[in-house]
Amino acid sequence: MTASTIVPVILSGGSGTRLWPMSRPERPKQFLPLTADETMLQLTARRAVGERYGAPIVVANAAHVGQVQDQLATIGITPAAVILEPAGRNTAPAIALAALAAPHPESALLVMPSDHVIADVDAFHAAIAAALPLVGEGWLVTFGIAPDAPETGYGWIQTGEPIAPGVHRVARFVEKPPLDRAEAMLAAGGHAWNGGIFLFRADMYLGALAAHAPEMLHATQTAMRQAQVEGICHYPDADAFAASPSDSIDYAVMEKADRVAVVPVAMGWSDVGSWDALHAISETDPSGNAHRAQGGEVIALETTNCLVRSDGVRVAMVGVSDLVVVASGNDVLILPRGRSQEIKKLIEAMKESAPKA
């Protein structure tokens, strides 16, 4: 492997609670076959294979080590390293662990969440190719998702002047906006959603941490230096890692660094952040229903515009519309379409009603 090889960094530490009851802390959504026969993790890993790419570095929760290794082995991918976080400290420290494990200081790291959908992989690869020359010069690059709605659940990026074909300087990052501001940005053009996918050299990222988040850099360096290593599995020192500030890459680095670029791209992206989002990207029958049984059975008569999932029990529906119905294990979720973001309320209510130990 050479320093010019792109090293995929797959972030797999999320808990995926917004897709309860199928997604749970012990098996969050990246390990589920939500959009295809393969899991979200497997589809993510497949996006970055071939002559240009090296073996991936996976950063995951220590509790999920078996699932990571088994699922990647099933598709014939052996990671260069699996870094197992003793606790979640957000994306900036997680990426620092991967950068410290990179095979070369100048390795280009392609940072990808493990639980996103990219329908047009060719467009993604074209965006990567457009970014690479700037990455070689030391720029930190993010990929901006071409917006098609005034989305308030994502951060936005305002694109600045062009600095290379298809690449712009970032003018500013915008927090998750209220609806009126999102509508204004969509109408104005020159804005993109922040999809959380990045490309930069390992040494440039670590240098940015040294300048803007030195405590985080010190903590992650110590955690990796004192890590236990078992084959490809790295267990960073828990006490050292706990000393790191918990912060996203956007806050810790991207909003503060000088040479930050964005490649706007339309690539059929979704973060599958809710059951409604999954319905929006799923194939539907002539009645608008998206149903998929993974070990269960779904029967829908005179039913329209519903999302139905089961991994065990039979779900039978007659004469209903615009529902989300998900059956997993001993739990069944039923709610109107358009309200799946309220699952957080359900989970809090279930915690409050649980028997006290």
Rank of each mutant, 00 (worst) to 15 (best):
V68T: 04
G207V: 00
I128Y: 00
G88P: 08
A227I: 02
Q226H: 10
P21R: 12
R172L: 03
L301Y: 06
E348F: 04
M1K: 05
N61F: 01
T220N: 08
L11Y: 10
G312S: 12
V121I: 13
Q158Y: 01
R169I: 01
I157Y: 06
V170T: 02
G153E: 12
D115M: 13
M267K: 05
F200D: 00
R172P: 06
G138Y: 00
H104D: 02
A127I: 10
A119Q: 15
Q221E: 14
A36H: 12
A280S: 14
T78N: 06
S328D: 13
A126M: 05
G207P: 04
P165R: 03
V260R: 10
A3Y: 01
R339V: 01
T152N: 13
S282Q: 14
I249M: 14
K351V: 02
P355T: 06
T303Q: 11
W275C: 12
A80I: 05
M185K: 09
A149W: 14
P28Q: 12
P56E: 07
S12I: 02
S321A: 03
H104Q: 07
H234W: 02
V324Q: 09
P264S: 07
G66N: 09
E230P: 04
Q158K: 15
G195K: 11
Q69A: 03
A119P: 10
P113L: 05
P93R: 09
V262W: 01
L32C: 07
A208H: 04
L97C: 03
F173P: 12
A63Q: 14
F31G: 02
A164R: 00
I334T: 08
S328E: 08
I299Y: 04
Q42H: 08
A293G: 13
T304F: 00
T220D: 09
D285R: 04
V121M: 05
L209T: 06
A126C: 01
G190H: 09
I163E: 00
W275G: 09
E26Q: 13
V59K: 11
A280M: 13
L72I: 03
I77P: 04
L333V: 12
G268V: 07
D276K: 12
P105V: 01
T78M: 06
K345H: 10
